[in-house]
Simulated assay, not measured.
Amino acid sequence: MTSLPEEPGSRQNPPTVGVVTVTYSSGDYLHNFLRTLAAATTAPVQVVIADNGSVDGAPEQAAADHDNVTLVHTGGNLGYGGGMNRGVAELDPNIEFVVIANPDIEWAPGSLDELLAAAARWPRAGALGPLITEPDGSVYPSARRVPDLVSGTGHAVLGAVWKSNPWTAAYRNDAAELVERPVGWLSGSCLLVRRAAFDGIDGFDSRYFMFMEDVDLGDRLARAGWLNVYVPTARAMHAKSHSVSKFPERMITAHHDSAYRFLADRHRGPGWAPVRWGLRAGLAARRRIAISAALRAQQGTSAPTPPTSPTPPTPEARR
């Protein structure tokens, strides 16, 4: 009697890769994420959807449609890092590699297999990231340097008004070639992480609700002796990258708060107090200017919609 082939995730064919995505009413983006993921790897995959409070039914539909998908309700909007930590905790502990990705990612065929092959070439890689494109095909600068106090402040203050300034160029690593190489940090919109490395630094710092959580992750991986490796032969498209929030004041405030936290955490102690005070004051002033400009731009395109609820911004709109 001929036995039936084992399904992915069975005892004889266990998942070798875990995929975690955080949702917040992601709609059809989640469907496209899972559809393209099927062609991204030949390996058995366990998928965990960590849902931060969707009301569109998309996570439930995905779990019903796919046998390898597990839905976890986080109990509230934990932000991207907190949601990811909850999702990773749900994975089989024997899984060696974990994909961390936004639900608005669309995978190129074979892209995850390419990342796994690169992980074999770089045994000290704690995180590996693909080349990420915008919907129009342009390359998003997803492999960057870790900002120090000078470059970080220069980028924060001048990045929006003088895009070609040297501090922003250095931070974005614009002049670097599209070759496989170690970098400072990789965009958290699509990452392959080694489970031992991720667990070894306790995953994402959940104090970052959105923005800078991936910079912090990459920096802490490097400080723990791991590499962040850019793999441009693997490709993914970020469908909503740089999307504009209906409530820019919330997005901009979250971004500035995270920027302060990242730099302040790395300049602790009484000796750095004047620097932290100056940084906080400078970022507060820039935040007010940025919010004012964003609201004016919003009014120029359509009538602004006044906030009707305290719902925080969605994690997938963070980049």
Rank of each mutant, 00 (worst) to 15 (best):
P44L: 12
G82C: 12
M212K: 02
F262N: 08
T311K: 06
G81E: 04
A62K: 03
G82N: 09
P232V: 14
T308K: 04
S243N: 11
R194F: 02
G75S: 05
R220H: 01
F204K: 02
L34R: 00
A175Q: 10
W122L: 12
R286I: 15
D216G: 15
P270C: 15
V229Q: 01
P135A: 07
A40V: 09
P166M: 07
F247V: 11
V69I: 10
T16C: 04
E90H: 06
G300R: 11
P270V: 15
A117F: 09
L78E: 01
E6K: 14
T36K: 00
L221D: 02
R124E: 13
M210Q: 08
L30M: 05
L227H: 09
Q46R: 12
S10H: 05
T233W: 10
L131K: 03
R195V: 15
P5G: 06
G82H: 08
P312Q: 10
H66K: 02
S245N: 11
L37V: 14
V98I: 13
T253I: 13
A101W: 03
L191D: 06
I291L: 01
G126Q: 04
N173F: 03
R194G: 03
V17H: 01
W226E: 09
H73C: 15
A259R: 00
A40H: 05
L112K: 05
E316I: 12
H242F: 14
R286M: 10
V19Q: 13
L178E: 05
G278L: 15
P315I: 13
E6P: 14
A125W: 00
R286V: 13
V139C: 04
A290Q: 06
L191C: 01
S302H: 07
L192K: 01
R145F: 05
V231A: 01
N68G: 09
V48E: 11
P307D: 04
S25M: 02
F247L: 12
P232S: 01
A64M: 03
R286Q: 10
R121D: 12
